[in-house]
Design a protein around this nucleic acid. Structure first.
Lengths: 213, 213
DNA sequence: TAGATTGTTAATCGATTAACAATC
DNA sequence: TAGATTGTTAATCGATTAACAATC
């Protein structure tokens, strides 16, 4: 398994490659060299070749990379050729916003259910999905082959819900709650801590001002 | 200026320190050693000490760190002692969700305006803020001392809006549009590419399955 | 074939961890 | 003072970049 031990630094760059290649493909570009791509993406050509060669040789000496082919291969590496059913926990503003993102469907992520503990929100529709009470969640996961749960609830309830998710066989949690979840390491967790992101921005504003008056 | 050239790796960890210290403070913990904090946060004590010493010596030999003091100092480093006025461009689901996050206010980020090009959304209220037409944006930025713009629009319009923001003196862009913005380097940009994040999750699911059958 | 460009090895750079003297 | 723990230097580890032989 040569795929083992790919660093998260590399994995974190794959979606960006995928995006640029998709755009190139859509504008009819057939081939591209690591040099050209590096200028477009503002990274080194060396890094591009190193990154790709973690997964195999997708290029051809003297030619470069076939855009369509490379795009498709990176998609496969990212697992976008597979379908994933996901549920959203939390039908607040953020949960509803995520539920309405139709783009996820294009990448194989299928919005299958939505849950909330607030009785007022039960029955509300987000796209074609009705919000269900939390009590239905565990059974729903087991019966509907759900692999991803999107946690869009306040941090207080997050840990408890996460434990339930794990017990019912969820494979991955996309965590928007502002807390670090404590789950077994075979459960994949991707954190989106919006306020952390905003603080980084804040830091960089202050820093810039300090350095430049 | 000893603050110069702090790596983004370090900066990216500051909000997490800030969060843990805030929780410790709220539970009444007065002092903590790098060792104790390292166990809590699952990082090395060495990394904590190194990270903090980029900004100064906040601890005391034989004692550790005063939680309250360190919390406050990291807050200052992050610029959270300053007020930042922000506007949200795009009153779609995501824009509205972000506008409704009252937590940002606690950190000094003040929601001051919201804009959309869709006539149907003009006048809609998000908290106490009315959605205004895009035409008002440039003047609003100049007249209301806005430093941060939250870009919550589709990628197609993002670059054009970004240019307008820059021309009117915005300092930072919190970019949720799925595109890399082309702005001068004195403009701080923090990207939140949700679909990239989801793809990383997808990769890790596939990888885990491959390695474990 | 000659030219171009990959795949890959080697060199460099930066970030993390370990160790320990300084000091509270 | 003795013990604890920082601040900081040194060692290690990993990631990025450079270089170039392989090859299309």
């Amino acid at each position: 398994m040569e795929d083992r031990g790919i660093s998260q630094a590399v994995i974190g760059r794959l979606p960006r490659y995928f995006r640029y290649l998709g755009e190139l493909k859509d504008t009819g570009v057939e081939r591209i060299s690591s040099q050209e791509l590096s200028e477009l993406m503002k990274v080194t050509a060396s890094q591009i070749r190193q990154d790709l060669n973690n997964f195999g040789g997708f290029g051809q000496q003297g030619y470069g990379y076939n855009v369509e082919y490379l795009y498709r291969e990176i998609g496969k590496i990212l697992g976008l050729d597979q379908k994933h059913h996901f549920i959203i926990i939390g039908a607040g503003n953020l949960g509803r916003a995520l539920g309405n993102y139709t783009n996820f469907e294009k990448r194989g992520f299928i919005f299958s259910g939505m849950f909330d503990q607030n009785p007022k929100l039960i029955g509300m529709k987000v796209r074609n999905i009705s919000v269900q009470p939390m009590e239905n969640m565990e059974r729903f996961i087991r019966e509907n082959d759900i692999d991803i749960a999107v946690l869009a609830i306040p941090k207080n309830g997050a840990e408890e819900v996460a434990q339930k998710l794990v017990r019912n066989g969820i494979k991955a949690i996309w965590n928007f709650a502002h807390v670090d979840l404590n789950v077994p390491k075979d459960i994949q967790v991707e954190n989106v801590h919006l306020s952390d992101s905003l603080m980084k921005l804040s830091y960089n504003i202050s820093r810039y001002q300090q350095e430049n008056g």
